[in-house]
Amino acid sequence: MKIKVGIVGGAGYTAGELIRILLHHEHAELGAIVSSSNAGNLVYQVHDDLVGEIKLRFATELAGDEDVVFLCLGHGDSRAFLENNNLPATTHIIDLSNDFRLENDREFDGREFVYGLPELNRSSIQQAQSIANPGCFATAIQLALLPLAGAGRLTDDVHVSAITGSTGAGQSLSETVHFSWRTNNVSIYKPFTHQHLGEIGESLAQLQTQLDTAIHFIPYRGNFSRGIFASVYTPSDLTQDQARELYRNFYTDAPFTTVSEKEIHLKQVVNTNKCLLHVQKLGKQLLITSIIDNLVKGASGQAVQNMNLLFGLPETTGLHLKSVLL
């Protein structure tokens, strides 16, 4: 079986990762890769890690016969694209923006978007027509907290400190993504107000319906290119052994989420679709460390994982990626 794939917004970081993964996916056939700013140019002229691997040129529009279309557009732009382009009802959509992630936004022009976190919604994703791919910070933080919510154990406020690489800001230039500003530098942005808090809260409430806890989230800009390192802590009456068993049991059938006995570091997940978790009890606080690659498990890899589930494939298909440890 070959899945005909279209990509819209083909020049950005997430699209580049998506192309790289799909080129080596045994069931995917890349069709139109749409970019309004690069139409007619060779794809590898923009994504130069793909030199020698792809001969396609950027297109101005989709072919119209795609089985699935990935929307790699800026926030707000996916909805605008769908308003202006009437895709066939038989075409699956996987949107990587935040346009359809929240419950009140998931219905659009007869389509129902399912929130695409496989560790939470696997069965719904398998039956879905369209997918709202989770945010990168949201993925790392939710995977750190879902087992507690599933057991009804989120009983106090949650504190999160998480740092992301510069690719999390996208490819558009701004002061805080320039090398001279970013290198040897760390800064806070959007403290307590980050846009991913909404989807995190909705997912936790899906498992723990009487949830009445606040999530205090401080995001950091890191001086590295890719990855997210999140430290999540909350008071808990669980022992360390009980907490680790709870996490291992929750993720028994999750091929990409692993609970590590040892402390974890970011290089273990860069370039992979993995999430690694480390759980420890320190005094009254349960500390969960969560690490992902923001461009893979936090974006394009998870999108392909969702595509696999939509088309009845093993969700690991095309995603056996190696980390770059050295």
Results as ranks from 00 to 15, higher is better:
Lys4Leu: 08
Gly9Pro: 05
Ala11Tyr: 07
Ala15Cys: 00
Ile19Ala: 06
Ile19Lys: 05
Ile21Ser: 02
Glu26Val: 06
His27Phe: 14
Glu29Gln: 14
Ala32Thr: 12
Ile33Gln: 11
Asn38Arg: 15
Ala39Asn: 10
Val43Phe: 10
Tyr44Trp: 13
Gln45Lys: 14
Asp48Cys: 05
Glu53Pro: 01
Glu66Ala: 11
Val68Ile: 14
Leu71Cys: 09
Leu73Met: 12
Gly74Ala: 10
His75Gly: 15
Ser78Cys: 06
Arg79Tyr: 00
Ala80Gln: 13
Phe81Leu: 00
Asn85His: 13
Asn85Trp: 02
Asn85Tyr: 05
Thr90Asn: 06
Asn98Leu: 07
Asn98Ser: 15
Leu102Trp: 02
Asn104Cys: 10
Asp105Gly: 04
Asp109Trp: 00
Glu112Met: 14
Tyr115Cys: 05
Gly116Phe: 10
Pro118Leu: 05
Arg122Asp: 03
Ser124His: 08
Gln129Ala: 06
Ser130Tyr: 04
Ser130Arg: 01
Ala132Met: 08
Cys136Gly: 13
Ala138Asp: 03
Thr139Ile: 07
Gln142Tyr: 01
Leu145Cys: 13
Pro147Tyr: 00
Ala149Thr: 13
Asp157Asn: 07
Val158Pro: 04
Val158Leu: 08
Ser161Tyr: 05
Ala162Gln: 07
Ile163Asp: 04
Thr164Asn: 06
Thr167Asn: 12
Gly168His: 06
Ala169Asp: 02
Ala169Val: 00
Gly170His: 02
Ser174Val: 04
Ser174Lys: 13
Glu175Tyr: 14
Ser180Asp: 14
Thr183Asp: 09
Asn185Tyr: 14
Val186Ser: 14
Val186Glu: 12
Ile188Leu: 09
Pro191Leu: 05
Pro191Tyr: 08
Gln195Phe: 09
His196Ala: 10
His196Ser: 14
Leu197Asp: 06
Ile200Met: 11
Glu202Val: 09
Glu202Phe: 07
Gln210Gly: 15
Leu211Ala: 04
Leu211Glu: 09
Thr213Gly: 00
Thr213Lys: 02
Ala214Met: 11
Ile215Gly: 02
His216Thr: 05
Phe217Ser: 02
Phe217Tyr: 13
Pro219Leu: 01
Pro219Phe: 05
Gly222Lys: 01
Gly222Cys: 04
Phe224Pro: 08
Gly227Trp: 02
Ile228Gly: 10
Ile228Phe: 11
Phe229Gln: 09
Ala230Thr: 12
Thr239Val: 01
Asp241Arg: 03
Gln242Ser: 09
Leu246Asn: 07
Tyr247Val: 02
Tyr247Thr: 00
Asn249Gly: 11
Asn249Trp: 00
Tyr251Asn: 00
Thr252Asn: 04
Asp253Ala: 09
Asp253Arg: 01
Phe256Ile: 01
Thr258Arg: 15
Ser260Glu: 07
Gln268Cys: 09
Val270Lys: 11
Leu277Cys: 06
Lys281Glu: 04
Lys284Met: 08
Ile288Lys: 01
Ser290Tyr: 03
Ser290Ile: 08
Ile292Ser: 04
Asp293Glu: 07
Asn294Ser: 15
Leu295Asn: 12
Ser300Trp: 10
Asn306Trp: 10
Met307Ile: 09
Asn308Leu: 12
Leu310Met: 12
Phe311Thr: 01
Leu313Ala: 03
Pro314Gly: 01
Thr316His: 14
Thr317Pro: 01
Lys322Asp: 15
Ser323His: 11
Leu326Glu: 14
